[in-house]
């Protein structure tokens, strides 16, 4: 038993198979795997449906991958589209495509330049987004750095450093004029959140009910119902804050 060699699982074309323990798993055509999967790596370039939980190290999804189960890995990279009906636990999550998760995310770093949707919470030491996201639960991160592109949503946000800015558009003037025309059609950058709690907070283009923190800075284009701060507080003139108090 112990000497049995662990083999790769490669699917080209169309195949139905069962889970198990493998070294590298490649799905290049259309594959359906029923059962739990354990492997060194998982790469999906075609279309994959996996009914079961997955434990792997390196994951790269360039095609379309639907998983009915929880997912544990070291690095998780989505360039295509990925749906997980379960939890996602990873060291590094990189979303350049689209990812949807029905439960919670737990990671050391989350980096979004595409779109992320989760029906649960999102826990990360470092959360960086230059794309868009919708988090139905709590976004909990030590360092939350958001550069808004379109509309982003979270019900709560908490952590040490929280910064919400508009994405830096470092483009020449002509392009800027052009992009301003495009922008007027496109969605405006907006962060929608019920409550933000943190030590150092800088927000802009944000709609929030409550912002609580030690150092609170409200940048342009914000609408906040209540700000509570313990050390200092600043507000840009064009932002609306209904009430603020020092606690």
């Amino acid at each position: 038993m112990g000497t049995q060699e662990i083999k790769d699982l490669k699917i080209f074309g169309i195949a139905n198979t069962t889970g198990g323990v493998f070294r590298d798993v490649f799905i290049n055509g259309t594959g359906r795997i029923s059962g739990d999967l354990e492997s060194e790596s998982l790469a999906v370039n075609g279309n994959a449906t996996i009914i079961g939980s997955i434990t792997t190290k390196k994951t790269k999804i360039s095609g379309n991958c639907t998983i009915d189960g929880s997912f544990i890995c070291d690095s998780y990279k989505v360039l295509g589209m990925s749906t997980i009906s379960g939890d996602l636990t990873a060291k590094n999550i990189h979303v350049e495509g689209y990812i949807k998760i029905t439960e919670s995310i737990k990671a050391e770093t989350v980096n979004i330049s595409g779109k992320l949707i989760t029906e649960g919470n999102c826990n990360a030491e470092v959360f960086e987004s230059t794309g868009t996201f919708e988090i139905e639960g709590l976004l909990n991160g030590d360092k939350i750095n958001i550069e808004l592109l379109g509309k982003c949503k979270a019900s709560e946000m908490g952590g040490a450093n929280i910064s919400i800015r508009r994405k830096n558009t470092d483009v020449p003037i002509l392009k800027q004029i052009l992009s301003s025309i495009i922008d007027s059609v496109k969605e405006r950058p907006l962060m929608q959140v019920d409550s933000i709690e943190g030590d150092d907070i800088y927000i802009s283009y944000t709609q929030a009910k409550v912002v609580r923190g030690k150092h609170v800075k409200i940048g342009p284009d914000c609408s906040v119902e209540l700000v509570e701060y313990s050390e200092d507080y600043e507000k840009a003139p064009d932002s609306k804050v209904q009430s603020s108090k020092r606690i």
């Binding site: 909990n140 908490g158 040490a160 943190g198």
Partner: peptide, 21 residues
């Protein structure tokens, strides 16, 4: 309440959320 907790213990939001995580 969370506010009272931070006041009594002197911990920051950052620590509280970190411990929760």
């Amino acid at each position: 309440s969370k506010k009272e907790l931070l006041e009594i213990t002197g911990i920051s939001y950052g620590s509280l959320y970190r411990w929760k995580r």
